[in-house]
Amino acid sequence: MGKRPTASTLKRGPGRVKRIVLFFLKAIYLSPFVVFGLWLIGIVYFQGYDFKKPFSSRPEKKEEKVLKVFLHKQETVPRQHFHMVDQYVEAPTETQAVCVVCHGSYAHSKEKKTRAILNMHEGFISCYVCHSRQEHGQGKVKTTPSGARIKFLWVDSETGEFKNAVKGEYGKYPAQIFPIEYSEGEDGRIFTPIKLEAAQAFLNLLPELTPDQVSSAKAKLHEPLSKEPVSCADCHKKDGYLDFKSLGFPQQRIDHLISTEFVGMFEKYKTFYLPSVLDFRGN
């Protein structure tokens, strides 16, 4: 005659496994009730408490203003922009310069006269084109510091495909112009003077760095960039830094791009007064 299992015998063998499984089933069954109870206690007794607030929040460390600007105001178009803006303002792009990680999409801010105009170019020209000038030797051959040949091509914003020409006008292009490096025996790839990992590491470490460390880190990060970036006049002239024809611009547009009106306006005049003959107020 077999002995009936007692509480002590249940603690061992297959009975124990069964008990653990039962315990978990009970826990799963009861957990919604516990959550509901906590929620009920919350709304009845703690009405003024914001449950969405994190339990512990570190006091915000003071960051440099220039970084605060775009790190905390992530590229949003102002609320209900009075002049309706379209999708081109914030056109998503798969491929973008590393510079955007820190400087945002409106990187130019110092020079009052040219900042908005220079920012205008960011929609269709990568920062690398102007800020990493790669002309070496007497013939000003465009090569990387390692000697790889450089060619400027359009890089499709969605697919990342290199193209000689794209359709579009007045800054509304489905691609951006990038410097493409061609090493011997290799396919072309985007020439990237600053590594993304370095920029991200800088941002991660930023709250911990002293002002001196920030300055030296920035200097190091920007070391591969040109001291003298490509200027307006370097491009907007005949046989300028960019070959507009090889980038597929029609001749009429090239004639306009290399005309001197705008470059002259910015380089010759401190302030350019619009002709008053264009002002029709009161007529």
């Binding site: 105001k73 409106y106 920012n119 205008m120």
Partner: peptide, 18 residues
């Protein structure tokens, strides 16, 4: 008419001039 015409103002707000 250029979509990226704009800048950040002194308060850090995005100013779209397009």
């Amino acid at each position: 008419r250029y979509p990226r015409m704009g800048r950040y103002d002194e308060a850090g707000n995005k100013r779209v001039y397009y």
